[in-house]
């Protein structure tokens, strides 16, 4: 077990919409392997295809989720801001990022350790279930937004 996490970090995780109201012991456990990080505009938070071992809770700033192909310009398909999260690839095999995540402006985020969180959630199924009840709607919402984008609602 690592040293007690700084109380500020515990507080910030506990206040983030993803964790607000969840068991304080789960929050403390997540905080014990987390760190707070600042990203400058243009910094990459995640690179498509690389190992996904983090879950980022955005506290400030804005992050663009980008998709690209060698033969066409990079396209931002969504921006994510304070109170939102980046990353579920840490939870789903093969644990590789599905997109690039790039800070559009100076961004502060709490970086949670994905494998450690997975391990904690699998050891405590009640926490795991409570966490999934929070996490799955975020994934469902992204999926729904992507489907709306595919409808091309601005076409006549």
């Amino acid at each position: 077990m690592s040293a007690a996490p700084p109380p500020d970090l515990v507080g910030e995780i506990a206040n983030h919409p993803l964790f607000a109201g969840l068991d304080p012991k789960l929050v403390r456990s997540a905080a014990s392997t987390a760190q707070e990080r600042e990203f400058a505009a243009g910094d990459l938070l995640a690179r498509e295809g690389t190992t996904a071992d983090t879950l980022l809770l955005i506290l400030r700033g804005k992050v663009a989720l980008e998709v690209g192909a060698a033969d066409r310009p990079t396209l931002t398909v969504q921006t994510v801001g304070p109170g939102e999260v980046v990353g579920w690839s840490w939870f789903v095999p093969p644990f590789r990022w599905r997109f690039d995540a790039r800070a559009v402006k100076p961004t502060r985020a709490i970086v949670l350790n994905g494998p450690a969180l997975r391990e904690t959630l699998s050891r405590h199924p009640a926490w795991g279930f409570a966490f999934l009840v929070r996490f799955l709607p975020l994934i469902a919402e992204r999926l729904e937004n992507t489907r709306i984008q595919l409808l091309d609602i601005h076409a006549r």
């Binding site: 663009a64 310009p73 990079t74 931002t76 921006t79 790039r102 559009v104 709306i148 091309d152 609602i153």
Partner: peptide, 21 residues
Amino acid sequence: VDAAGRDWYGDVGVVTTRLPD
């Protein structure tokens, strides 16, 4: 906007994604 290149510093996402804010 629904999608943008890197030269856009604003929000990206369908219009309903801005409503929670």
